[in-house]
């Protein structure tokens, strides 16, 4: 059985995390935001071919990551293209990530064969094979099946958007996971748009989480811009998984601050007022900061230091990535097969 129960949140901060944990998470969030903003600039400078920004999604990614970090030994992550936060939190350094966005030599996930964030880092237990939306969801369920067959106490988690939730892959995967009570968490980052298509043209329900009941699976809707809400919901889901009680669907409602990708023009389908409002009311980084300062977990001076550190780290990452070379193609034909045919 699970070795870590949820500590009752008797602390002021409303979770079982220490204040140091929270500062650590916040620092990562600030770094994530700074890195993400820089990457967007790199795209506009013609140095990064394509970017899908995580801005607006920070709390959903980091809140769930921190929950698994504290409540599951060796969790497996099956994220999607918007989940820069997962990679950063898992310990892939900003320079390596920047190298990925610039498709330079030394890219750790796919050797720059794939779009940014695609490929794998087995040492961090992250696999995100494909650009084909939702295909990672059954992979996560298969990973959970492997854990169950082997009798391992390991949680697998997969991330996907509201758009992806319409794919058969997601439905089939949720059904399968529920039948076999697999230790997997489905985390939907609902930013209300699939590129330009608003949620009301994607589905006839307001909450994607409603779908869980169709599979006999518990679900939770959280404010995906609130780190601690996502954290606590994920802790509960992880506990359920480790107790052998099966999967959970968590719907994290949040806002996408930038166009779908750097190739998109969101002024074609999104009112500027709507976006402005979203940024004001739903900025996960601003919210987290305010919470920490209000609760005296962080001082303004500490906050400024965190910002400075992030800036320096991003500058450093940019320099390293800019000076990296192109992949030389020596291994172009390598790794088509793992077992070679003589």
């Amino acid at each position: 059985m699970a070795n870590k129960r949820i500590a009752k949140s008797n602390k002021l901060n409303g979770s079982d995390l220490t204040n140091e944990d929270l500062l650590d998470a916040y620092s990562t969030m600030v770094l994530l935001q700074a890195l993400d903003k820089r990457i967007w600039i790199m795209n506009r400078q013609g140095k990064a071919a394509i970017v899908a920004s995580s801005q607006g999604h920070e709390a959903a990614q980091l809140g769930s990551f921190w929950a698994l970090k504290h409540h599951s030994v060796n969790p497996w992550f099956f994220p999607y293209y918007r989940d820069l936060g997962i990679y950063l939190a898992a310990g892939i350094n900003p320079a390596e990530l920047m190298i990925g966005y610039m498709a330079k030599k030394g890219e750790p996930l796919s050797g720059a064969r794939q779009f940014p964030l695609h490929g794998a880092d087995l040492s961090k237990r992250i696999i995100n094979q494909s650009n084909v939306v939702a295909t990672q969801v059954p992979h996560a369920v298969g990973s959970a099946l492997a854990s169950k067959i082997r009798g391992e106490q390991i949680v697998s988690i997969t991330y996907f958007g509201d758009g992806a939730s319409s794919e058969g892959d997601v439905h089939e995967a949720m059904n399968f996971a529920s039948i076999h009570k697999l230790p997997v968490i489905f985390l939907c980052e609902n930013n209300k748009y699939a590129i330009s298509v608003p949620q009301k043209l994607q589905m006839a329900v307001d909450d994607i989480s409603l779908r869980a009941s169709g599979y006999g699976m518990p679900s939770d809707v959280v404010d995906g811009t609130d780190f601690l809400q996502v954290y606590n919901a994920t802790v509960e889901a992880a506990q359920r998984a480790l107790d052998g009680d099966g999967p959970t669907l968590i719907e994290a409602k949040l806002e996408r601050f930038l166009p779908h990708t750097s190739d998109d023009d969101d002024t074609r389908y999104r009112e500027p007022e709507e976006l402005q409002l979203a940024k004001q009311s739903s900025d996960p980084v601003a919210k987290f900061k305010e919470f920490l300062i209000l609760n005296k977990i962080m001082t303004k001076e500490q906050s400024a230091q965190i910002d400075e550190r992030a800036k320096a780290e991003v500058n450093n990452a940019t320099n390293i990535a800019e000076s990296a070379g192109q992949p030389d193609g020596d291994d172009f034909y390598e790794h088509v097969y793992a077992t070679k045919v003589e």
Binding site: W76, F78, I127, T135, V137, P138, H139, A140, V141, G142, S143, A144, L145, A146, S147, K148, I149, R150, S156, G168, D169, E172, A173, N175, F176, I179, H180
Partner: peptide, 25 residues
Amino acid sequence: DRVIDAPLAEDSIAGVSIGAAMRGM
């Protein structure tokens, strides 16, 4: 656990198998 009657859903029969295989099964 090792002889699994799958629901009638071929995409996930393949997709779930791939996920397990990624983990070495």
